[in-house]
Amino acid sequence: MAISKEEVLYIDNYLKFLGIKYLDVRLEILDHLASEFESTEKQINLGDFLRTKRPFVKNYENQWQKAKHWGHQKALIKRILGYFYKPNQLFIPICIGIFLGFNTTLLPKSLIAISFFISLIVPQCIHFYVYYKPVGIYKNIQSAKYILSIMALPSIFMYLMGIMAPIVKESPTVFYAYWFFAMVFNIAGLQEVMILKRQIVKTYNKLISN
């Protein structure tokens, strides 16, 4: 028996009541509950049915976050490793190496420090811009939150600078190695962010404009 528009609205309100705020999360739970309710052969009240599904709804968002978070972190690590063994991606570490070489040979020490900070700050600024544009994306879509979590690991290089400063000042080799890996992580992070953003816009374009 097909579910009516009013019943769909009832499920939607129930999910809102349980704190399921984001549209991309709500639409899947709603469809699952509606499909299961439609296929039940017994005559059952929708409210009673929804009460039996409360643990599933409550756990759904947590499980979603856990699965997605680790999935994206795994993808980021895979991408970073890919830079060093995939022939078509080897040009990225090579380009970073050339950039660092250019900095060492051509720039004075004061400009090297500025160049270092710019190379770490710019990717962070870009990912914030990607996250907040368009507005609907972070307001309605839970998946967009992972744009921020993907860049959490690369941003560590910026935050660790305070601790690393004494070591880095003493040894230029450590400094350039630190800079190299910071750039590798940031570029890989940005690539993952762009892929995720493209996917979100393609999949949820109807929801973003809501």
């Binding site: 997605k68 795994k74 993808a75």
Partner: peptide, 28 residues
């Protein structure tokens, strides 16, 4: 459902699954 959706979301995040949203009856 408690086992299915985490598995689907993990596979999606790993880039093995693609997602498509379509309007069916009176819901997405």
């Amino acid at each position: 459902e408690g086992a299915l959706y985490p598995a689907l979301h993990k596979l999606e995040a790993e880039g093995l699954l693609d997602v498509e949203v379509a309007k069916v009856d009176n819901r997405l």
